[in-house]
Lab assay of single mutants.
Amino acid sequence: GFPHNFQETTYLKPTFCDNCAGFLWGVIKQGYRCKDCGMNCHKQCKDLVVFECKK
């Protein structure tokens, strides 16, 4: 597997964290999205993600 390539992201529609399944709250920059596989997560979850990037 590969490490994720997370970038701070502004979501335009309701989005949930792929790590904890919690809602990504806020208006802008609600969470992080992996540029390579599209995984979404909270800032506090991005260092805890157990799934490797599937590129």
Rank of each mutant, 00 (worst) to 15 (best):
G26L: 03
P14E: 01
E8N: 08
M39G: 10
R33I: 15
C37R: 01
A21T: 14
P3D: 15
W25Q: 09
L12I: 02
T10M: 02
D18G: 05
M39N: 08
C37V: 00
T9D: 09
H42Y: 01
V49T: 11
P3A: 12
N40M: 10
D18A: 13
F6A: 06
H42S: 05
P14V: 04
C17H: 01
N19H: 12
L12R: 08
K35T: 12
L24M: 15
E8I: 11
G38W: 09
N40E: 10
K46M: 15
V27Q: 07
C41Y: 13
C37L: 00
G31K: 01
L48Q: 14
N19L: 13
K54L: 06
A21G: 10
K43C: 11
D18L: 13
V27M: 06
F51S: 13
G38L: 11
H4N: 02
C53E: 07
M39T: 09
K43N: 04
G26T: 03
F2D: 10
M39W: 08
N5D: 10
N5S: 11
L48P: 08
G26K: 03
D36Q: 07
P3E: 15
C53T: 06
Y11H: 13
C45F: 03
E52S: 07
G38A: 14
N5E: 10
Q30C: 01
G38T: 06
A21I: 14
T15N: 05
F51M: 12
N40C: 09
C17W: 00
I28P: 03
D47M: 07
W25E: 12
I28D: 04
T15Y: 03
Y11A: 06
G1W: 03
Q44L: 11
H42Q: 01
T9E: 04
L12P: 08
C17V: 01
V50G: 11
R33N: 15
Q30K: 02
C37D: 01
H4I: 01
Y32N: 15
V50N: 07
K29C: 08
N5H: 13
F16W: 04
Y32R: 04
Q44C: 13
Y11G: 03
V50Q: 14
H4P: 00
L12E: 07
E8A: 14
H42C: 04
V49Q: 11
M39C: 03
F2L: 04
D47A: 11
V50A: 11
C34T: 01
M39H: 09
V27E: 08
H42K: 01
G31L: 02
D36W: 12
V27P: 05
Y11F: 15
D47I: 07
